[in-house]
């Protein structure tokens, strides 16, 4: 316990963070009846971009057309504003704690920065694909889904972390 506290003294206590995060989720559900999310905004951006470049294709394609509506622009979405908030909030927190610095790469000493960036991009690609299958990512599906006791949320949580542990062995050189 002591060890952990020394390592993370610049961060808040994880349990305090958890309680605050849980209260944020609770407040979100209480006010809006829905949950927090992150990938939704990325999806909206993609949909908006494709709709801008190739409107006929977007309207006829089975997936894009699901998120297109005549009423409003795809970027005019709850999750887009919430995601802008994530950036602002994270920046504020980093600013207060002195963690905002110019762009740098965080990687294990055993790998080169280049390897780190390649695997970060690949990880992003996989997460992007998986989040669409899961109908939400760790925040939307696992965190909010489980909190609202949706079976899909519980399954998403179990399979994200389960598969993480399953593949952890093969990628151990990246981290330790």
């Amino acid at each position: 316990m002591k060890n952990l506290e020394e390592r993370s003294e610049q961060y808040i206590n994880p349990y305090l963070g958890g309680v605050l995060l849980g209260l944020t989720v609770l407040l979100t559900v209480y006010i809006t009846g829905r949950g927090l999310g992150a990938t939704g905004a990325v999806k909206s951006t993609i949909v908006a971009a494709v709709d801008q470049v190739a409107p006929t294709y977007a309207e006829n394609q089975a997936y894009y057309s699901k998120f297109l509506s005549d009423d409003h622009h795809p970027m005019n979405n709850w999750l887009v504003f919430e995601t802008i908030g994530i950036f602002v909030g994270a920046f504020l927190s980093g600013l207060i704690a002195g963690r905002v610095k110019k762009f740098r790469i965080e990687h294990s000493p055993k790998i080169t920065p280049k390897t780190r960036l390649i695997f970060a991009t690949l990880g992003g690609v996989f997460f992007g694909i998986g989040s669409q299958f899961g109908r939400g990512c760790t925040s939307g599906a696992a965190l909010n889904g489980t909190a609202t006791m949706a079976t899909a949320g519980l399954l998403a949580m179990i399979f994200i972390f389960g598969s993480g542990y399953l593949f952890a062995y093969f990628f151990r050189k990246l981290w330790i």
Binding site: L122, G162, G164
Partner: peptide, 13 residues
């Protein structure tokens, strides 16, 4: 989706 996301998590961190 969960399995793919887990893979992405361990690769991308």
């Amino acid at each position: 989706g969960g399995v793919i996301m887990g893979l992405g998590f361990i690769m991308g961190g």
